[in-house]
Amino acid sequence: MNVLSAGTIACIAASIGAHPVALEIYSENSILTAVTEIRDRFGDVDMRVNNAGCGLYGALEDVPLREAGYQFEVNLFGPGHLTRTCLSTGEIAFLPGYAEQNSFCRAFREWTGHTPDEARAERP
């Protein structure tokens, strides 16, 4: 298994103009804090790279449930939450099939009484 040091990651990131941010992928609070920090500093998240992952070995019946749950948090739920947290309103608009962001924003406001940005700001 190849593991890159923090220094190596920083050098690679600097060479392409990226700014890596460490977070705990299984923690929604850590993800939200990191994304908020990025948006405050740079305006938005331009690229996401998930470099987290873990695996368990052995027969399924021998794997402790707690360890299996952690694996799902790291490999599935955490990256999913990171992706949802980073999506722009425009990206979200295309998911249900809207051709343009403005139509989605108007419909969202009609359904909820809030703009998408207001809804995000109210989110815990």
Rank of each mutant, 00 (worst) to 15 (best):
S30I: 14
H19L: 05
E37D: 09
R48Q: 11
V21W: 00
A10K: 00
D40P: 00
D46H: 10
M47Q: 15
T33F: 12
I25T: 04
D46N: 11
R41L: 12
F42K: 06
P20K: 08
F42C: 09
D46V: 04
A6Q: 03
N29F: 14
T33I: 14
T36R: 14
V49L: 14
R39P: 08
I16V: 11
G43D: 11
A14K: 11
A18S: 07
E28S: 08
Y26H: 14
R48G: 00
I31P: 04
G43P: 06
G43L: 09
A18C: 00
L32K: 14
T8P: 04
M47D: 00
S15E: 06
A6P: 04
E37T: 10
V49K: 07
E28Y: 14
V35S: 04
T8F: 07
S15R: 07
D44A: 09
I38A: 12
I25Y: 03
L32R: 05
A22H: 02
D40F: 09
D46K: 12
D40C: 00
E28M: 10
C11N: 02
E37R: 09
A22D: 06
S15A: 10
G43F: 01
D46S: 15
G43Y: 08
M47W: 08
C11A: 01
I9E: 04
M47K: 12
E37C: 05
S27H: 04
F42P: 09
S30D: 12
R41Y: 08
I38W: 11
A34W: 10
S30K: 07
R48L: 11
D46T: 02
I9C: 01
I16S: 12
A13M: 09
N29D: 09
H19Y: 03
Y26E: 13
V49Q: 10
C11M: 00
I12G: 02
A6N: 00
G7Y: 04
I38Y: 02
S5A: 11
R41D: 04
C11F: 09
A10D: 09
I12T: 02
P20L: 07
T33A: 15
I9L: 06
V35Y: 06
A10R: 11
I25A: 07
I16K: 07
G7V: 07
G43E: 05
T33N: 10
I31D: 01
G43A: 15
A18W: 05
G7D: 00
T8L: 00
E24R: 14
I31W: 01
D46M: 06
I25D: 06
D46A: 11
C11V: 02
L32G: 15
H19T: 01
R39D: 01
R41T: 13
I25Q: 03
G7P: 04
T36D: 02
D44N: 07
I31M: 01
E24N: 05
I9V: 00
S27E: 02
D46I: 10
S5G: 08
A13H: 04
I12H: 13
V21S: 06
F42E: 13
R41E: 14
I12E: 01
D46R: 10
M47I: 12
V21C: 00
E37F: 01
V45P: 05
G17I: 15
E24W: 05
I38H: 01
Y26W: 14
A13R: 03
L32H: 12
G17V: 10
C11K: 02
N29H: 13
